[in-house]
Design a protein around this nucleic acid. Structure first.
Lengths: 334, 334
DNA sequence: CTGTTAGCGCGTTCAC
DNA sequence: GTGAACGCGCTAACAG
């Protein structure tokens, strides 16, 4: 038993293939009598007919497929994928998955997909503040619709979906203030020496908030490779104290140092993280309060934008940046 | 500037399209002179030609694409995807992603993809021990190559990639014994009342190990909704004690209970988890020793099998089950 | 042995 | 509402 084609449907319904196509695609400007339309629908149901996406794609030059590229080691990427996949399905698109593997020319190969698989758009999950203008230019040049999640925050040429990191810090500080009445110190963990986009905004927001509340800012830069420094810092703090960490890794180090010093988190020491990148906040003992980056929503927003771009439905004057607000995730640590 | 086609390549190289195709596909039985071959390769490079996957797929009836289906809320699925994506790329295949969304007929729609997008195979990440024979039968009936990760452990009709849960328990017990000289009690956390395949094997392995070591088994069933019970249990244990948990959730509850009782994990109480499903073991304070399920490898193995099946390269007599060994992941809790 | 010609696969689109 | 051309690569049959 062969796979049914539109020809089979047409024969069974007593019409031409063109009509089948027109009905399935709601081709504007076609007029089909209700009887014929019904006959076609019946034939489709009876035969279990499905259009061959490859044949359709060959004719139209599009594939109803978008590519997602990101780091498959990073659990955040999964959330982005979740949001993207949902919106894609709803729009009748399919998601092709590509993982960062560490090859140099890897990302450029995504462009080849544009030719080879006729992908209709590209969505990347980049590191916060990441920007590769050369790549973006190539993509633009090729005419491939492209949206980055968390990348290119300062490039107006590239579409991206971002979260307001400054706002996340204000939200965290307001929450800690309400809960404890303390002005938190700020611990910023870094893996490298350069201060990236997100951290710059977080730091500025912290400084501004402290200024507005008449407290002197207390900022502590923490090298993730040197956890001992933290022990000294915490030992000198007058308790009870409150600390806000820029990143889960810092919070985790604070938990360890607190354990070593016999400080009880949530009582002697209040901790909050400005993120939940390891997806482990709720498993910490006690659970870690934080601000969450709503990656599922960001993935959904990015996919939606990519699809609109692919379909040419996006007006020219829409802003290049889509901002998604941060979310408070209370735990037991504050 | 139009996208180059094989026609363009053929013209530039002074040959027919058939030759271009033969060279690209190493068609067996077709011999091309080195000069022509080189001319074609040059033309391809010069034009930046790429075959149109949709046109090729339409002709061959295949798409060099496989579908991955699983729960996008589950970080383990990401690891499976990572392994699958890598092997797919290496074999020249592409991965289409589908997330479990909760719709009833959802999985059956994957079969429609077989018709619509001509996918060459299907890979699912199922819950441990899961089996849906009706679905498997439909897939088999349709002739779609199918491999499950962690599902269908007892169905010889379905291909699956599994880990030996009994072995993971033995590995954990041996390790704890070496490190502490203690015979651990066993805490099994459950969300529902039925004991699933994996947990049955774990339990049996625990009982056998204890018998072999001449210790009476001490098994504690823990309802995840009633953490108080744990507190009583731990309070009565003669310290130092060792506990082996079937699942991360149980370990996490033990950490909490221990904190409440003032017991120091890693000193008064040794804990080990038979899994790392939340990917949070290393963030626990102290870090949680565990046995890991090598999901990346399992995803890779599954993809490899699917591709071999799709290409008809799999001999008939290969066993339906692929077993991947568990891995010890030492931490600070034992 | 090397290479060509012609037809096919299947849905879309445009002139009639 | 129809007929016929078209998109692009593959492959069987065939020719030099």
């Amino acid at each position: 038993m062969k796979r049914p084609t539109s020809q089979d449907v047409a024969l069974l319904a007593g019409v031409s293939r063109a009509v089948v196509s027109a009905i399935l695609n709601r081709t504007p400007g076609i007029r089909v009598s209700p009887e014929k339309r019904q006959a076609v629908m019946d034939a489709i149901a009876q035969l279990g007919y499905r259009v061959d996406a490859q044949a359709r794609g060959m004719r139209t030059g599009r594939s109803r497929t978008i590519a997602a590229y990101g780091n498959l080691d990073n659990p955040m990427f999964l959330q982005v994928l979740q949001g993207a996949q949902q919106t894609c399905m709803q729009a009748g698109y399919h998601l092709l998955l590509y993982g960062k593997g560490g090859h140099p020319g890897e990302k450029e190969e995504l462009l080849a997909l544009y030719q080879e698989r006729r992908i209709d758009g590209l969505l990347t999950k980049d590191a916060t503040g990441f920007a590769d203008e050369a790549f973006a230019a190539m993509v633009h040049e090729a005419g491939l619709p492209f949206v980055s999640v968390e990348g290119y925050p300062e490039s107006e040429q590239v579409q991206s979906v971002l979260m307001d990191y400054g706002e996340s810090i204000r939200m965290a500080l307001d929450y800690m203030w309400r809960q404890t009445g303390l002005s938190p110190i700020y611990i910023a963990a870094y893996e490298s020496d350069t201060v990236k986009w997100g951290d710059r905004h977080r730091l500025e927001a912290y400084e501004r908030w402290m200024a507005e509340h008449g407290s002197p800012p207390r900022i502590f830069r923490l090298n993730v490779a040197e956890p001992e420094a933290l022990r000294e810092l915490l030992a000198e703090l007058p308790g009870p104290a409150a600390v806000l960490c820029n990143w889960f890794a810092a919070s985790n180090m604070v938990y360890r140092a607190a354990a070593g010093l016999g400080l009880a988190v949530g009582r002697d020491l209040f901790i909050m993280s400005a993120d939940n990148t390891a997806q482990a906040n709720r498993y910490m003992v006690p659970s870690l309060s934080s601000i969450e980056v709503p990656y599922v929503k960001m993935g959904a927003a990015a996919a939606e934008r990519v699809i609109r771009l692919a379909e040419g439905k996006e007006p020219e004057d829409v802003p290049a940046k889509i901002w998604i607000p941060p979310q408070l995730a209370p735990g037991e640590s504050v």
